[in-house]
């Protein structure tokens, strides 16, 4: 029973989605199914919050190594949540000056805006920038001319790396206009537009078919492993 009902729900919801694509009057049903998902995901957010609280509270109470960080996490969590939820420091909308909670939750200058602008923005930008360092170390370690294919890959990488920077213009800028396709930027464009595109399309077709067959398996209840192993 515990397995059957979810499979029926998955099959019905999936079928509605598929059929509604071809049968216009069913579009409303599809939208309802999509709304249900959003509602469920929003409710699950509470479970997520509870999971965070439980995990870090346990670490603190067990005095595990690094429990201080858990404390910091919980304090930050509480502050951000309450500042956002209660719209702390947010002035009311100009149209309704006597209604204190009408303002936008992330109004310029309000505490939540401050947290966003001066904490989240720099922190996430820093994390993203780490990519540059990891790309460098990966290039050093993994880009080896082990066989013929790897040599091809290496050659392509050289052309694109040069063609995508000023070096390409500098090195092959003297090539006459009529041979522009032979300059480094020209070759980069060809590589991206022809070889890359061809490869990407092939991968996309494979992925699309993979999605189709996975969806069919789930719709028909052949693959139930996402609900746990069937045996």
């Amino acid at each position: 029973m515990k397995r059957t009902i979810p499979i029926i729900i998955a099959a019905v919801a999936g079928l509605v989605m598929v059929v509604a694509f071809f049968v216009p009057p069913l579009i409303d049903w599809r939208e309802t199914a999509e709304e249900w998902f959003n509602i469920l995901a929003a409710v699950a957010m509470i479970l997520g919050g509870a999971s965070i609280l439980a995990m870090h509270l346990r670490r603190i109470s067990d005095q595990k190594r690094g429990w201080g960080f858990s404390l910091v996490t919980l304090i930050a969590f509480a502050i951000t949540l309450s500042v956002g939820l209660f719209k702390v420091g947010v002035p009311p909308m100009a149209e309704y000056p006597d209604r204190p909670w009408t303002g936008e939750y992330i109004t310029h200058g309000a505490p939540l805006w401050w947290i966003f602008q001066y904490l989240i923005v720099p922190i996430t930008a820093t994390m993203f920038s780490l990519l540059a360092f990891f790309v460098a170390s990966a290039a050093f370690r993994a880009f080896r001319a082990k066989n013929a294919e790897a040599v091809l890959l290496l050659g392509t990488a050289f052309i694109v790396l040069l063609g995508r920077s000023y070096a390409g213009t500098l090195l092959t800028g003297w090539v006459p206009e009529s041979y522009a396709a032979l300059t480094l930027p020209g070759m980069t464009d060809t590589i991206m537009g022809v070889f890359n595109t061809a490869g990407q399309r092939a991968i996309m077709i494979g992925i699309a078919l993979g999605i189709a067959s996975t969806s069919l398996k789930i719709l028909l209840g052949i693959d139930r492993s996402y609900l746990g192993n069937r045996h």
């Binding site: 460098a136 370690r141 050289f158």
Partner: peptide
């Protein structure tokens, strides 16, 4: 990056 790739090889 190019220098690193060459060095790696």
């Amino acid at each position: 990056m190019l220098v690193l790739i060459v060095l790696g090889n």
